[in-house]
Design a protein around this nucleic acid. Structure first.
Lengths: 151, 151
DNA sequence: CAAAAAGTCTACTTTTACAATAGACTTTAT
DNA sequence: ATAAAGTCTATTGTAAAAGTAGACTTTTTG
């Protein structure tokens, strides 16, 4: 039940972008290199990840000098579920309960398969969290902890 | 976020054992071969899985003619969480929120890491389901569906 | 006691998915 | 024109998962 490194790095990068304040009233454009340094991620690997996210429409980018990445939408409109699915695929622990990519698993009778019922619950519980948490929610929560710690 | 085949097969086998009625007032001892046929699982692979479950104290076995496997405890006292962890390891999607096998992940500051907070929630949601669902619960639910379908 | 029917144990092989690296290419600002 | 950024695709390395093999032990029963 593991989040892949791609997923981990991508989510961290997106959260970082969401938490980066706008510079002098313009978009907060951040370079791969900076993200990779701040988050301790191989720049080359991160490159791929951000590209995937861009092609999925979650990031925009600007080429050339002064370029970099920025969120395609306000942080409140990007959910962790979107990011996760883009990088790691379906949330479901087993294909036969996947909304995105259903496939029968090998059980004798799907309709009465107890494992399937439970894994359906698990899928829903995970999707509930991921699809109802936006980048803005995450940043808010981080800021709350910062305040609590008096920083 | 995938359940492995080991996990899937092991859980299915345990559910099957829990749902097998006792024969003439004695324990329902079932052979590997029968489980593998009923559940469509390679007998050799299943062998390993059941052995692991046995060594974890969740199954007992009887060697020789008329032998086989049976649950080490009543179905109400075995949770899916125990089975899952035995076969697939920690429930947590990321090591830094694991109760079983904590390890720092690479984020700059764990205490204020937004991803960690959310993944902690995910871990808890999954563990909540798996640790509070016993084999007896699963069997009950299967029977309810059977009744619903009029079989 | 011998043979057959079960589980036990460990090692090996194959396959697949993940993680990471490399390098040539495109776009944009100055 | 050049340098600084992102783009794209191919390749490699590695580890975990899935599956296979085979020799061994225990138990029953004829």
């Amino acid at each position: 039940m593991r989040l892949s490194k791609r997923g981990e790095y991508g989510l961290r990068a997106m959260i970082m972008l969401a938490g980066t304040p706008e510079q002098d009233a313009s978009l907060p454009v951040v370079q791969i290199k900076e993200i990779s340094q701040r988050e301790q991620i191989s720049a080359k690997f991160l490159e791929q990840i951000l590209l995937t996210l861009k092609n999925a429409g979650l990031l925009h980018s600007k080429m050339g000098i002064g370029g970099g990445y920025y969120l395609a939408k306000p942080p409140g409109e990007i959910t962790l579920g979107q990011i996760f699915r883009t990088l790691d695929g379906p949330v479901a622990p087993i294909k036969c309960v996947s909304q995105m990519a259903y496939e029968p698993c090998g059980c004798p009778d799907e309709q009465t398969c107890g494992l399937r019922m439970v894994m359906g619950d698990v899928r829903n519980a995970i999707a509930d969290i991921l699809d109802n948490t936006s980048l803005a929610d995450v940043v808010k929560r981080q800021e709350a902890v910062h305040k609590e710690l008096g920083r």
